[in-house]
Computed example of a mutant assay.
Amino acid sequence: MLIREFAESDWAQVWQIVRPVVRAADTFTYDPGMTEREARAVWIEAPPGETVVAVDGDEVLGTAKVGTNRPGPGSHVATASFMVAPASRGQGVGTALVRYALEWARRRRYAGMQFNAVAESNKSAVDLYLREGFTIVGTVPGAFAHPIHGRVGLHIMYAPL
């Protein structure tokens, strides 16, 4: 598996990952009715941020976007988001993307990385982030309307760099 910068030719496969994740409405706070155009505008990061893909040959296994969490006085903290193709889950793709994002932020001398809205019901993501050095610094109760579990908390997670 190789993690590399997103290329325009990757979008068709990235959209095939993003679309079902967004439509499921069980992990991301994106509008499940978001169009392909809207998704592309949200997912493809402008510099100094970056969007990457994890690939095996020509197949996109997962994708991530990394960048500055907040502008101005908050610009010393990075953020990132990750999506993995259903067939590639449980194979280390998410772990590799998280490690890539952390290293990306370290190279750019960010002080830390913050995730603003991790659904507490997304146990695999929460567990992964905890394993990679993040802590839950707070939870907004009932802030995420999960389609099966109802309203669940959204964690704010942080890792110092």
Rank of each mutant, 00 (worst) to 15 (best):
W43S: 12
G94D: 10
F134K: 05
S9M: 03
A101G: 15
D10I: 00
Q16F: 00
S75V: 02
F82S: 00
V77M: 07
R106N: 13
F28C: 10
N116P: 11
R108Q: 09
T27P: 06
I136H: 00
T63G: 04
W11V: 05
Q114E: 14
D31A: 08
T63V: 15
V126Q: 09
I136S: 05
R106K: 15
A12S: 06
V126Y: 04
W11S: 01
R23G: 14
D127H: 15
D127P: 06
A24G: 11
V118K: 10
A85D: 12
G92L: 03
H76K: 03
A125L: 12
G33S: 12
M34H: 03
S121W: 00
L130D: 01
K123Q: 12
G67W: 07
V93P: 10
R70S: 11
Q16W: 01
Q13F: 02
W104S: 11
T95C: 03
R70I: 06
N116K: 00
R109N: 06
A78D: 02
I17G: 09
E5D: 13
G94L: 02
T51C: 14
R70T: 08
T68S: 13
S9Q: 08
A54T: 06
I17E: 13
G49M: 02
Y110D: 09
L61F: 13
A96G: 10
E45F: 12
V140M: 15
N69H: 15
V118E: 10
G57F: 00
V60G: 15
K65F: 14
G90E: 02
E45Q: 13
F28W: 14
M34R: 07
Y110L: 03
A105H: 15
A25G: 13
A96T: 08
L130Y: 00
A117L: 00
L102F: 03
R37A: 14
A7R: 15
M34D: 07
V22W: 12
V42L: 06
E5W: 09
R4G: 06
W43I: 06
S81L: 09
G57W: 05
R99L: 11
G62I: 01
G94A: 08
L128I: 00
T79F: 06
R108A: 07
G62V: 05
V21D: 07
W15S: 12
V18A: 14
R131I: 01
G57A: 11
R40L: 02
R131A: 06
E8Q: 08
